[in-house]
Design a protein around this nucleic acid. Structure first.
Ligand SMILES: [Mn+2]
Ligand SMILES: [Mn+2]
Ligand SMILES: [Mn+2]
Ligand SMILES: [Mn+2]
Lengths: 227, 227
DNA sequence: AATTATTTTTAGACAAGCCTAAAATATTAT
DNA sequence: ATAATATTTTAGGCTTGTCTAAAAATAATT
């Protein structure tokens, strides 16, 4: 068994962020890229990458960027599993809004107890996605990516689609979507594309016709539905 | 409004431990006493007491011990509220044993979110005591101490009592009590006191007659029941 | 290819929270 | 009251994780 001895919260956050920036095709992550996401300075990143490199959690070569090792990736995925399960718990069991959960989950994701997180998974009935539609890794670290999702901003006129995921990075977006009653599962028909500002006019089931800016549409993933 | 800006986990742990050592009559707490409980060195304690003194969370005078200020006490009680609510959550909702909850609660008690802890309180239906019988402070910091409790080791022969609280400090004790099916609420009749080793012979409802050592009996609180 | 701009690393510093060893103070025993 | 003992504080040091400023390496332009 490989030692999984307690990492610091800082270390866990680095691993998680490298995983996110690395993406599904696992590209190398730059020092500056990490610095921006982690809101710290490049020099601090370099220090930490050396340490994580020594611990064999990331592959790191000077000036060449970094990527997660198998061991590092496993830990990152587990942190993300905890984050998304806690967000789901807060929304499903404690009536939090989807705009209120991220900051609390940032804390809860560092709690160390397999029994706890697996218990939360159980009482939630093993959800597949979190309140923003992000996939929840299972106990073994498998992630069920939704292959067929596409950005709302890239759908053709008269498509009928269902919202499957929204970007969780902006509170403002989530609150705006609340205000127009656009949720996960919302059904949308694309009526018109306005060339001038690239906004789209849509029919939103339950809330009639409305217009969405390019920026909003770029932060919503949908899947096509046959009707 | 007094600034309640985020304290470090270390600071929170100091406040909590000062509260516990200070007891209901709020005696002054010694540097060495704290050092032992916090498993660190007296010199470290002195450093921290200076800092907490500067922040007006404890009253501290060199060589004179320390005590919590109103502000410090309020924070300490809130940490304890969170600790005990989380323990209750783990036992009542996730089927943890009473011997498994303390270490996880030590982590969870530092999560900052009023909405979260009040939500947990709500889904637990506002419990008055935690899995070990310790009182859970309410939202406003009021603690409902059970006045009539007494140590099992100090009860007279042929008393009939009910277990209301057990010491949570020892895993061994909690597991031993599990093994003899002694829980909160268990009914006990005191049959005999053995002078030689100060053990007591009892009748435990649901598990017949058995003998409890002085040490065990000193870690169980009971209340008298009329029958 | 040489110069300029950008990115990344190094060097040195700092706060938090801990430590050991030594000095200061308080307490207890003679 | 003095000496011996116990407690507490000070002094100085270490690790983690951050920072700024300067140097080095890489990438982009001319
Ligand atoms: Mn999130
Ligand atoms: Mn999410
Ligand atoms: Mn506890
Ligand atoms: Mn308890």
């Amino acid at each position: 068994m490989t030692k999984v001895s307690a990492l610091s919260q800082a270390e866990e956050n680095y691993l998680k962020e490298i995983f996110h920036l690395s993406g599904q095709d696992k590209i190398k992550v730059s020092t500056n890229g990490l610095a921006e996401k982690l809101e710290s300075k490049a020099s601090s990143i370099t220090d930490m990458l050396k340490k994580l490199g020594d611990k064999k959690l990331v592959s790191y070569e000077k000036y060449k960027g970094c990527s997660l090792t198998k061991k590092g990736e496993k830990i990152a995925i587990h942190i993300i599993r905890k984050h998304r399960l806690w967000e789901t718990f807060l929304v499903n069991k404690l009536n939090f809004g989807w705009d209120e959960v991220h900051d609390v989950a940032e804390q809860l994701e560092h709690i160390q107890s397999l029994k706890l997180i697996n218990g939360i998974d159980h009482i939630l009935n093993y959800p597949k996605v979190d309140p923003h539609g992000d996939p929840i890794p299972d106990k073994d670290g498998n992630i069920d990516y939704l292959e067929s999702k596409v950005l709302l901003s890239e759908t053709a006129i008269s498509s009928k689609v269902e919202v499957v995921q929204v970007s969780e990075d902006s509170l403002d977006l989530l609150q705006y979507l609340d205000s127009i009653k656009l949720n996960l599962g919302s059904k949308i028909e694309i009526l018109e594309r306005v060339a001038f500002d690239e906004s789209i006019r849509v029919k939103l089931e339950g809330n009639g016709e409305l217009s969405l800016s390019k920026k909003v549409a770029e932060n919503i993933y949908v899947k096509f539905i046959q009707k």
